[in-house]
Design a protein around this nucleic acid. Sequence first.
DNA 1: GGCATTATGAAACGCCTGTTTATAAACACT
DNA 2: AGTGTTTATAAACAGGCGTTTCATAATGCC
Lengths: 230, 230
Amino acid sequence: MERRRRDGGGAVLRERDPEARRERLLEAAGGVFAETGYGGGSVRAIARVARVNVASVNYYFGSKEGLYREVLLRAHRQVMEAEPEPEVGGDAREALRGWVGYCLRFVLLRRASHPVLGRLMAHEMRQPTVALSELVTLVIRPKFEQLAVVVAAVAGGGMGREASELAAHQIVGMCVHFDHSREVVERLGYRVPGGEVEIAELAESVAEMALGGLAGMVRSGKGRTKRIFK
Amino acid sequence: MERRRRDGGGAVLRERDPEARRERLLEAAGGVFAETGYGGGSVRAIARVARVNVASVNYYFGSKEGLYREVLLRAHRQVMEAEPEPEVGGDAREALRGWVGYCLRFVLLRRASHPVLGRLMAHEMRQPTVALSELVTLVIRPKFEQLAVVVAAVAGGGMGREASELAAHQIVGMCVHFDHSREVVERLGYRVPGGEVEIAELAESVAEMALGGLAGMVRSGKGRTKRIFK
DNA sequence: GGCATTATGAAACGCCTGTTTATAAACACT
DNA sequence: AGTGTTTATAAACAGGCGTTTCATAATGCC
């Protein structure tokens, strides 16, 4: 079948600056994907926010997925530059407090300048894309093993490796819950914090529960015989 | 513009049993929505599973949303009939263990006969629909307040109401994490349990951390002065 | 100036979605 | 047998999606 001729629309002003366009697209995509996740964000919405034609997404990034990958890489790079690592040396209990604070900041902090990686990862956890495995080995696993080490140190030899990791999962669960289930948590009357000070308060509470819980596990000897990892 | 005539397809075998069709649709929709959430499941997929025409969804339930609401109601009814309530009377610590076990069973259990409400609610938490508020007041809030009471009882007057509720949120976080972040948790080497026995083991660990954590909070007096609820 | 290269925009493509319409078969009742 | 209602179906509809096409405007180069 014959295609209709199209005339391209006549004289239009064309700003021409590839670098700026690429950057605007990445910025806009970061915001959109952080808000709605990969599947929820449409390339048309991104293009609109970036004030750019839809076709530019494919021109610059090949596909929606390509754009998403670059957004993730960029966000990861920004975090590595901007966010200070948690203190894990020295006192083990203090290290655990530091880790919890770091994790909660990562997930909850809503500063304008804050990198969007935390929210992107939250969406990945809920609805994984092909990028999840990469993200796990690149970002999540190192952080998680760091926590597992801290947990083992807090237990002071009172817990096996498997029990430490299980406890670490539970601690992570406490942290991410306030973001993952935000809608429910807020409907139940808790105002999920978004500022530095409030997040620090929440972190103190979570760390307190973790520290007390670990102490209890060590006392009861529950951490010794478990064998529930594969 | 004039519409083309359609002939309806001639002689086809038609099974005629409204009740069974409605039931098949609800069953199929329960499975599909439990797997992919409301947004992720398409009416065409549901109709295919139910071996029913697409239009039947709108004929019987008005809309996709109407079908979803009935699925939720049905699932809730099934749970109320099938799943035993957790023991909350008697010893407070034992009550907490009971609650955690109930919550984990609710979220993780994958028996063929198990109601799908847990998985539907998990999707609602991640991506709320208009049904979430209803679900919160109908199912989640009662359970949550039950937990908050148990937590306060375990603390034995050593925690204020707000601190009890915050601790309750943290405990819920530990429970739902293993389902919400299943993909990540499994990639980190933990096999998320789906059977009764394993779930009970996990529940013991979570309850242990909660009990120890609450004890620690009471000891340190952290539960007294907090004022971070709105 | 002439020409190839790169970048941009409007529209189309093909596929999916939930929903509606028109037809028709099956049933209930007279 | 005839009539009216309920139930079932295939096809159309309207709109969204990611992607592609193609003409053209802007640029770099000779």
